[in-house]
């Protein structure tokens, strides 16, 4: 486990990433964009209070705007960081040298993903002061903010896993990046379109189709305090309809989203790990199956032997 976390790949990725001028530039651009939105919104509100004063909804409105915009930024930035992690190594002709070492495919894939996610986390954490503005106006709890950041983390992990998966599948980084963005677009807009279509086709179905919960915007929306949701178009009854039944009320939509994302992450990373190492991949699985079969055969023979012995013993009695 220690080898998996304190890994040279992670160390190298951090070193390489933070050494160039691109990193501070990207952080500056990211924070600059968030600053523009916050200050722009604050400025328009200031113009308004000249006549009527700050409304009670100013804080929540900034909060909603900021959180949605930040989710969009995370969705936009994550593929750029992850969709070339393996194909880039392949293009640079360094992948074979990496596979030649004692690092396992699991270790390479997980640490590549962790390095990218760590950088995205840095972007998210560095944006925290902007959320301080929301506190200035009030109306948001710290626990709600924590939920929002969990949604960001899960979204980054999901889109990161998609990026790493595409990067392993496709030889060219360009193809990998394009496919990753298409998949991310599907998560954000495609799931919404399919949901709208299903809701219109089957208006009496009740509840929301399961696919809606894959949308990170749904997860984000469900973490907003109740008053924020007023006037928004979809009323997300908790619990996906169809599969489990519309009356399942134990989990919130963001929790369903996390479960869905978790499954997607595990499946995609598992396939990526299998595909990365051309020699180690299936042979390891095959060996495992062989061992299991051998153990079964051995235990079968032993039980047969025991049966025979016990029969003999019984007869001997």
């Amino acid at each position: 486990m220690k080898r998996l976390v304190l890994n040279p790949v992670l160390d190298k990725e951090f070193r390489s990433r933070m050494r160039t001028w691109k990193s501070p530039l990207l952080i500056s651009l990211y924070l600059g964009t968030l600053a523009l939105i916050t200050l722009g919104y604050y400025w328009t509100q200031q113009q308004r209070i000249y006549y009527s004063g700050f409304g009670p909804d100013v804080g929540p409105q900034i909060y909603v705007t900021l959180t949605i915009f930040q989710l969009m930024l995370v969705s936009f930035v994550t593929p750029a960081f992850t969709a070339g992690v393996i194909s880039g190594e392949r293009e640079k002709q360094t992948l074979d040298l990496l596979i030649c070492t004692r690092l396992s495919a699991i270790s390479i894939i997980l640490n590549k993903l962790m390095a990218s996610i760590a950088y995205i986390l840095l972007l998210i954490i560095s944006s925290l002061p902007f959320f301080g503005v929301v506190y200035f106006f009030g109306g948001i709890l710290l626990s709600e903010l924590a939920q929002i950041f969990l949604v960001y983390l899960m979204t980054a992990l999901t889109f990161g896993a998609v990026g790493v998966f595409c990067s392993t599948i496709f030889r060219k980084t360009q193809v990998s990046v394009v496919v990753t963005y298409v998949i991310v677009f599907f998560f954000l807009a495609g799931t919404a379109a399919i949901t709208a279509f299903l809701v219109n086709v089957r208006p009496n179905f009740g509840g929301v189709p399961v696919i809606a919960y894959l949308n990170p915007l749904v997860a984000l929306y469900s973490t907003f305090p109740g008053s924020f949701a007023r006037g928004l178009p979809l009323n997300f009854a908790p619990g996906p309809s169809g599969a489990v039944g519309a009356n399942v009320t134990s989990l919130q939509p963001w929790q369903y989203n996390f479960i869905g994302d978790g499954i997607i992450i595990v499946v995609l990373l598992f396939i990526a790990i299998l595909l990365l190492d051309p020699v180690g991949r299936f042979s390891r699985l095959k060996r495992w199956f062989k061992r299991k079969k051998k153990v079964q055969v051995d235990s079968g023979e032993i039980s047969k032997k025991i049966d025979t012995e016990s029969t003999e013993n019984y007869e001997g009695h």
Binding site: P8, K12, R15, S16, K92, Q93, L97, T101, R102
Partner: peptide, 28 residues
Amino acid sequence: VGYMPDFFGVYDDLKVDEYLDFYAASYG
């Protein structure tokens, strides 16, 4: 085995000793 391919890339953003250190660490 120590393998040196016919075409290979290097991590240009690393220093010479960092490059070797990375691979040495990768071999545990």
